[in-house]
Amino acid sequence: MRISGLKLYAIVFLIFLYAPIVLLPMFAFNNSTVVSFPLKGFTTQWFQNVWNDADLWQAVRNSLLVACTSSVLATSFAIFAARASTRYNFPGKGGLMGLIMLPMVLPDMIMAMALLVVLLGLGVQLSLVTVIMGHILICTPFAVAILSSAFQSLDKSLEEAAYDLGEGPISTFYLVILPLVTPGIISSLLISFTISLDEFVVSNFLGSKDKLLSVYIFGQLRFPKSVPTIMALGAVLVALSIVLLALAEYFRRRGIAKTGAKDTGGFL
């Protein structure tokens, strides 16, 4: 294939997109306390620091707990919303769906502050629970987007066929609907998990002393001597994210292939 101007542009654009995450492993293995060029030499010291940092592991545990809970709850909420919006017409549908999808565009700072002021006003103690409450709000729109496309590709006559062949509403759900949307649900869980793990603003302002990983990282970036360790941590996180995303994409595509629908592209 000949390299057209447009393709060259696309490649430059990809370099721009990947520059920060490509540099991560370079600095992570760089034998210098300063994150700058030229590179000094190879070391695994920063990874050892990551391994030995007890605070970091506590943050990882907190983050995993929050991400698991948030992704399961957000996906559950999204199943209701996606099913309702793809299958039924009802008054107020546009407004309610708009509200549910709002966190996708609403600046997260405004959302976090609004929730924070109300929670403090009600005398609620900040904890991992309040963080989870916020993360659910943030993850749900993405989960709804993924699950809507999964439910959308379900032909209504498939359900009717199941009824016609003698099944009731519950058996129809687990014999026909669930098997067909399962890939969408898995993909939604993985994406929500990734978003929750990565989220900073809500985690920072709705969180307590129990820091999440993103908050811990943000705090450490203030100290220049911690930065190389964070680079090593970042490299690990990037690798993990790619694995999770590849899995999510695999399940999403399998779902589409299963229902025989056409692939309409990415997650969003």
Binding site: D155, S157, E160, A161, D164, L165, G166, L175, K258, T259
Partner: peptide, 26 residues
């Protein structure tokens, strides 16, 4: 689901996650 009628749908509504015999035996 209890009527003595069965339907052939316009879109056929063949369950995409099942094999031919699983569909017929549904």
């Amino acid at each position: 689901n209890q009527r003595p009628t069965n339907m052939v749908f316009q879109s056929y509504a063949i369950f995409p996650h099942l094999t031919v015999e699983e569909n017929v035996g549904f």
